[in-house]
Simulated assay, not measured.
Amino acid sequence: MLAMRPGCECCDRDLPADAAGAYICSYECTFCADCVSGTLAGICPNCGGELLPRPARPTARLARDPASTTRVYKPCEGRTAPTA
């Protein structure tokens, strides 16, 4: 099950688990659409992986399967994706 992190790692914008607009890599690094299309150009700055839309968790399921409350914040200004 996805952790569904609550915010963008670059700008700390809230990303509710039951809403669209979050992007993740295969390690579940989480970013907002603005950072993905701008600063990050679709590439995770942590692992170099592709960032894809994160599915939303149905609101009715959040009580049983809550999203993570752990925020990860590492401002992305000036960061570049690792090279393979």
Rank of each mutant, 00 (worst) to 15 (best):
L2R: 08
A3E: 13
A3Y: 12
M4F: 13
R5N: 05
R5Q: 08
P6Q: 00
P6F: 00
G7R: 01
C8H: 06
E9R: 06
E9I: 04
E9N: 07
C10T: 06
D14Y: 03
A17N: 05
D18I: 09
A19K: 15
G21I: 07
A22H: 06
A22P: 04
C25K: 00
Y27F: 11
Y27K: 06
E28L: 05
E28F: 00
C29D: 09
C29R: 02
F31Y: 15
F31L: 02
C32F: 04
A33E: 15
D34H: 07
D34L: 07
C35I: 02
V36C: 04
I43S: 02
I43V: 15
C44F: 01
P45W: 12
P45F: 15
N46E: 14
N46M: 13
G48T: 11
L51N: 07
L52R: 14
R54G: 04
P55A: 10
P55C: 08
P55I: 11
T59D: 01
A63Q: 13
A63T: 14
D65F: 15
T69A: 12
Y73P: 02
P75W: 10
P75T: 12
C76P: 06
E77Q: 14
G78H: 12
R79P: 04
T80E: 14
A81E: 07
P82M: 02
P82D: 08
P82A: 01
T83A: 11
A84M: 00
